[in-house]
């Protein structure tokens, strides 16, 4: 039995895929961390998990009144509430996952300095947690689609998983990068909320991407722009699905993900020393 498992500890670990497969070995821990975060979050609250619905819902109502009703921001011909909710749904998944991932090493400092496990588990579990929130909040969207009588076409439904994967990867990639920096420079914690706010204004959450006109491909370098626009196209038929846009987003996502994993893996082993 003891022969089946040999560990070699050396000063420098070269990046290898075996360290990624180790994450799979520890998948139960991934489950437990996610379970813990979900379980703990709404302890001692009166309405519990309803908060996951409340936040995007109230935001949607307020935005609809001010941006849709008073400011009359165009919405590609669909009712503004459902237009903005689709955007918010993906945006909140992204932004909350990003900020949680960036801080996850700090919040779990006590565990990191005392126990070994693949550190990647922590950021992954925070994105998972937010993904479940997304699932809960998506119920509202389904309700709204019935209310406003929208039926998504088949290709539309098929592309949603792809968009979710992109969102998942963007927040993980960027999050891993920021989390690694955060270990040494706590500036991240202060800069991030501000950064996310700015990012929201350059992402077509409250306005349609079409107002950027022929320059929209520049905006597409921000993968969330591609995601939100495609989600609207797929579910609400606002525009035709723009595959170039999706491809650009996908490419940008891959680059972000690579940078994220590389930075994280490079600094991972020293977290316990400098955190």
């Amino acid at each position: 039995m003891s022969n089946s498992h040999t560990t070699v500890i050396k000063p420098k670990k070269i990046f290898s895929f075996s360290s990624l497969s180790e994450v799979w070995e520890y998948r139960e821990l991934l489950y437990f961390f996610t379970w813990r975060d979900l379980k703990v979050r709404y302890k001692q609250t009166a309405i519990g998990a309803l908060w996951a619905i409340f936040q995007p819902f109230i935001t949607m109502v307020v935005f609809s009144v001010f941006f849709g009703g008073l400011l009359k921001i165009p919405s590609d011909g669909v009712p503004y509430p459902i237009f903005v909710y689709t955007g918010l749904l993906f945006w909140q998944f992204f932004s909350s996952a990003l900020s949680d991932t960036s801080n996850v090493l700090i919040t779990n400092q006590a565990i990191i300095t005392k126990v070994y496990f693949p550190r990647l588990i922590l950021p992954l579990s925070s994105v998972m947690t937010k993904f479940i929130d997304f699932g809960i909040a998506a119920v509202i969207l389904v309700g709204m689609m019935f209310y406003y009588n929208y039926t998504p076409h088949l290709v539309g439904l098929l592309i949603i998983p792809l968009l979710l994967i992109i969102t998942f990867m963007v927040s993980t990639g960027l999050g891993l990068f920021l989390a690694s920096i955060n270990v040494k420079y706590r500036d991240v914690r202060y800069a991030l909320p501000f950064f996310i706010q700015i990012l929201m204004f350059v992402t077509p959450v409250i306005y349609p991407a079409s107002i950027a006109g022929k320059y929209s491909w520049i905006l597409a370098l921000n993968p969330m722009m591609g995601v939100i626009q495609s989600a609207r196209a797929a579910l609400l038929g606002t525009t035709v699905l723009n595959w170039t846009l999706v491809s650009i987003s996908l490419l940008a996502t891959f680059i972000l993900m690579l940078i994220g994993i590389y930075t994280f893996k490079k600094t991972e082993r020293y977290f316990a020393d400098i955190i």
Binding site: V8, I9, K10, K13, I111, V115
Partner: peptide, 29 residues
């Protein structure tokens, strides 16, 4: 394996459990 060595090598033939602190990760809630 919480922190890497600066030089040298360790070879371990078996699974390792470590208890550097009692109740690591216990959540009060």
């Amino acid at each position: 394996q919480i922190t890497p060595p600066t030089t040298g090598e360790i070879r371990i033939n078996g699974t390792v459990g470590s208890l550097l602190e009692v109740g690591t990760g216990f959540h009060p809630e």
